[in-house]
Design a protein around this nucleic acid. Structure first.
Lengths: 119, 119
DNA sequence: ACCATATTTGAACAATTGTTCAAACATAGT
DNA sequence: ACTATGTTTGAACAATTGTTCAAATATGGT
């Protein structure tokens, strides 16, 4: 009837289920978390973010640095803007992008550490 | 000829391009970084990871906690295993999963902070 | 008003994703 | 050997993704 209804018949397991359920944040928060972290999940965007950890950069310089087309960079910057990983300011014809805050750099750095340790 | 060839004609911009390029890690490292962080980028997987920050859990309890089907959980656990976000151990019929290391919990926690600050 | 530069946008496309379902495999108890 | 429980697997499907291309928008200089 209830399709997803589990499951463990063993009762030594499963005693903490209610406790864990009530420790979880709201679905809304979980979705925001996933959407924020999803924005890190593409090598073009990672390359852009790593470039921005060194310097504030305009769109066309990011294109030159990453080897991506200007259009591809702009599309990815939109994702990074929408998901609040980067901020920007206009200066004449150029728009300069930078990391939104330290959290973004921290996540990149922790992820780097993790990869180096795992081999 | 070269399709992606940029780009900025203004020379005040772009002087640091070479410097930033040489500061970037290898493409291989960038891809590993993206693949690791991509594994955080789905609300089902985030829910699983948050549950695991509280308790070591077996597959069917994760299913009960998250409301996902056992099969869906197992598929996602495979992603999390492959990308080294979780580890596991067998105990009889059950397989207990837990976060691979502190890095994973740290990333979840920093991302949570980020979201709360941005509103 | 016009032109060049810088950037964004929208449609199109192949490629990838997450879930479901049914079937398989693994372990433990009888 | 058989059965029940726990978990994984593979095929299928709709939905989403990232890039390209062509066209649009924005700013500044003449």
């Amino acid at each position: 009837m209830v399709k997803n209804a589990p499951v463990c018949k063993s009762r030594s397991v499963g005693e903490y289920v209610d406790e864990v359920v009530s420790s979880l944040p709201s679905d809304e928060h979980i979705i925001e978390l996933a959407e924020f972290l999803e924005a890190f999940g593409d090598s073009s965007r990672i390359k852009i973010l790593l470039a921005l950890s060194n310097h504030e950069l305009c769109t066309c310089d990011i294109s030159a640095i990453t080897g991506l087309s200007v259009s591809a960079v702009s599309h990815q910057l939109r994702v990074l803007r929408d998901k609040k990983l980067v901020k920007y300011r206009r200066e004449g014809r150029n728009i300069f992008y930078s990391l939104d805050d330290e959290h973004v750099a921290d996540i990149l750095s922790i992820a780097s550490q993790h990869i180096e340790e795992e081999g």
